[in-house]
Write a protein that binds this DNA or RNA. Structure first.
Lengths: 362, 362
DNA sequence: CTGAAAGCGCTTACAG
DNA sequence: CTGAAAGCGCTTACAG
């Protein structure tokens, strides 16, 4: 009755399909069919197999299934920073929310792949995923080439355009333009831009990605008023992209002689910190100072006054990126591209330039 | 020169170790050694292999490596809700931050495993992970047994104690006790508790997990003043665990006749919504109403007045859970248990009960 | 220093 | 309806 064994039953270890087959008196083929192709065996046999599996505590080994099927049922996100930094950034919270909707719909899991030894490139070969979302790639140092050579489906988010690669990006440039135009129209001419600190390459490679696009938008809006980032009254500073970073730079900016009448931050979270600094220094918003942010994160509605900002639907971005990746994995090779629109959201934190000079201005 | 082929070179597909071996004129064994055991082959051979691999765009297939090694280099988190809900919950943001620190240290990736067809249990067999963090398990419906039978290392977070299973939980009961005691000492006797809505089993199975412990703490503190949750003046309500949920229930509570002088929410985010409702209804905090939350999320410091709450270091909790899981995976079977302490953080949102009766109270 | 062989645990044509 | 055989792509004793 029992078929000959080539290996001893893995007593003590996890049961395999062979153990189940032996116990049910069938072949491993039948065991596999019981799970994956029930119509190929009789219902009676199937029940016997399932019973044996249950007795043994057997479940098919996912690693073996993956290898055999060449599918993992997992979407990978290639991250530009370590997981703690990502988790503390509300932007990624929103992005992963949208991407998570796709995972749910498809019944897939989500693998977070932080850089390995500071390299996104090195993280690629270790992930058993069906495809990658590549996000925060400030400049391509071979990641795209590696992905292509490995033949792994992937989609680029907020990256430089590349022919034949599906991509989702954001119209940051227009959003930034509209925001600065709004403030210039309100009469502001003493404006400080607070940029979130770029990656390690910000200096050497220049700004890329969303920050670069926003700066372009700033410049274009200024140009319409015959201004540049170097004009007198215009100031550019950098801060960590946190509330604390905004608070500290805000104190610094507002304590200096001849402070600006408007501060524009490239992230809401920094803008919120700047508003906090203004409150501490008793600078009235928007009467004495206008503050604006970027992203329209939920918190932007909760400040007093509420924050003027540029909305980008980061959740939509994550959702769309997931959609594109799933399509790519399924082999539809139309390689779509989508640009997420931005909208200027005018709220109470910005207002007309003070008619009296700001404190400290002659 | 070229060794005979048993299979055709996978032209068009991804190169395998056989392709590299053929091109370098060595065996697959040597190719593997080039990556995993360089000292076993001559440096010259190694360079030749690596060159061939590079020419072909070869990287070892992670799924095959996992199967062979029986290791995935991945930590799994078994989640109680879909990924979007998790990502929008600041609690998980903090928890995953702490867990992410462990991933970084160990060079591992993090796999988010949401329920499959509403079942955490069903999600288990599909994840190729070295171990699971089990979180938000309100009541065990077989998950633990399944994990045990499969022999997968796991650690339980905020769950019921189970012998031989490493576990991290939180002293929610004491934190809740201290919080209620604080308000009772301030003289409050009209107190509404706002609980975050439990899972689908809240009704049938009673409260489990952190919420259950918090309720126990509430009861014990009340008992010291000869009160119960059913006493006149004491009220228990439920709301979704969001700012909006807090806002709506807050409006409801404060608009009713005979409103409480204190509201205690089981989550900061709800408390923040309740404070918003008070602001809208022009109920002064803490002069007319005391509000308290739970968790001490960063936002709790940013409200005006700042929120009294119970701090639990969720980040530490995630970090510790990760430490325990790594130890479990490495086979140290001491199955440690740790309870994360809580601390009452008294801020401006709570104060003495109004000497004059609250509006609407005779 | 190097390679032939076995095997990780599964799935799937193929043959009966 | 059922099973023997091949193979997914790798790693690792084992033998030379």
């Amino acid at each position: 009755m029992s078929t000959p064994r080539f290996t001893a039953s893995s007593s003590g270890n996890q049961p395999t399909s062979r153990d189940v087959a032996d116990r049910a008196g069938v072949s491993r083929t039948a065991v596999s069919f019981a799970y994956n192709n029930p119509s190929r065996i009789s219902e009676e046999t199937r029940q016997r197999i399932l019973q044996a599996a249950n007795d043994l505590g057997y479940t098919p080994n996912p690693m073996a299934q993956m290898l055999k099927r060449g599918k993992s049922g997992t979407l990978g996100v290639l991250l530009p920073q370590a997981i703690p930094a990502i988790m503390q950034n509300p932007y990624y919270g929103q992005f992963l929310t949208g991407l998570g909707e796709v995972c749910d719909r498809e019944g897939m899991t989500l693998l977070l792949c932080p850089p390995l030894r500071n390299s996104m490139l090195k993280a690629i070969p270790y992930a058993a995923v069906d495809g990658f979302i590549v996000t925060g790639l400030e400049s391509d140092r071979g990641e795209v080439e590696e992905l292509r050579r490995r033949g792994i489906p992937f989609v680029l988010v907020d990256s430089e355009p590349l022919p034949g690669v599906p991509r989702v990006d954001t119209d940051d440039e227009l959003g930034a333009f509209n925001l600065v135009q709004h403030l210039l129209q309100l009469g502001h001419r003493h404006v400080t831009f607070v940029l979130f600190e770029g990656g390690p390459d910000a200096q050497t490679l220049g700004y890329r990605g969303p920050l670069g696009l926003r700066i372009e938008g700033f410049k274009r809006a200024l140009a319409a008023y015959d201004l540049t980032l170097e004009s007198p009254g215009i100031q550019v500073m950098e801060a960590p992209c946190t509330r604390q970073g905004g608070l500290e730079i805000g104190r610094h900016i507002l304590s200096a002689p001849n402070p600006p009448t408007a501060i524009i931050a490239t992230s809401d979270i920094m803008a919120i910190g700047i508003m906090e600094a203004a409150r501490i220094l008793e600078v009235a918003i928007p009467a004495q100072l206008s503050v604006a942010g970027f992203d329209d994160q939920p918190e932007a509605q909760w400040t007093y006054p509420a924050l003027t900002t540029v909305r980008q639907s980061t959740e939509t971005k994550g959702h769309r990126a997931g959609d594109f990746l799933v399509a790519e994995i399924q082999g539809r090779d139309n390689h779509p591209t989508q640009t997420i629109q931005t909208t200027l959201i005018t709220r109470g934190s910005t207002g007309p330039v003070p008619s009296t000079p700001a404190p400290g201005q002659a």
